[in-house]
Amino acid sequence: MTASREKKIAYGMLVGPSVLIYASIIIFPIVFSLVAGFTEWSGLGVPEFVGLKNYTRMLSDPVFRLGLRNNLLIVAISVFGQIPFGFALAYIIYRRMVRGHDFFETMIFLPITISAIVVAKLWNQIFSPAGLFTQLMRIIRDDPRFVLSVFEDRTFAIVPILFVILWMYTGIYMVIFLANLQRIDPGVIEAAVIDGAREHQILFRVVLPQMVNIVFTTAVFAIAGSLKSFDLIFAMTGGGPAHYTEVIAIYMYLNTFKYYNYGFGSAVSMMIVFLSLGLITAVQSVFRRLEARYV
């Protein structure tokens, strides 16, 4: 009796403060957005209830759909690019395959410590029509009007941004994987090496099965982060030219803060939440199956 009472008090003291701070800061804004999403409202004046009109308008807007496409590509590069890359890098360092692994670890992590605004400015200084790379190519190809045409291509303008995203955030996944690799009992790997296991056998039979949960965790994080991505792209291209690099968060930002469509913007931000939830649920079911098979 006293034990269970003591447990409850301890629980309250451990969990209570987080819940309190989190709830007080997050709940009001979310409920506010959810409700505003059903209205037509400039933020000033009286909101008008319009039901699901904001959502239907959004789904029929080609700009939103282009943004959605780009967002899904970012999700793909995060889940199928950053996670495997991050794991590969962590594994290389963990297995001591290169000399100076400390140095390389720092190099890979470095991009994350730089703010998105700085990264965007740097990349613009390099790949813009007056940038370092463009100038170099003009000399090499002896063509004073050379520019990177990929930035003006409706289908592929997002690709350079995907590349920056891959470069910038892979370090996060490396750190997570490295921390977890170091929890594997070294004896297991030593035993495998003594038994003559090849490197790929160690990787696929010993290490990876222990990482399934971590991969799921990182996938959730990657999805949530990808659909929200804003700072970097806003500073790099602002979604342009001609919406080719638009993402949903920029679409939301412009509608809310530039066009004063507060209600519509709120609906878009709720859409980001719904889309993330959908994707995470899908990923969860995939991993449940994987777990059932391997663990």
């Binding site: 029509p129 004073p144 050379f146 003006e152």
Partner: peptide, 11 residues
């Protein structure tokens, strides 16, 4: 200017 639609203001 070449690349006019990808050039940031100031270029």
């Amino acid at each position: 200017s070449p690349g006019i639609n990808q050039a940031a203001y100031g270029q």
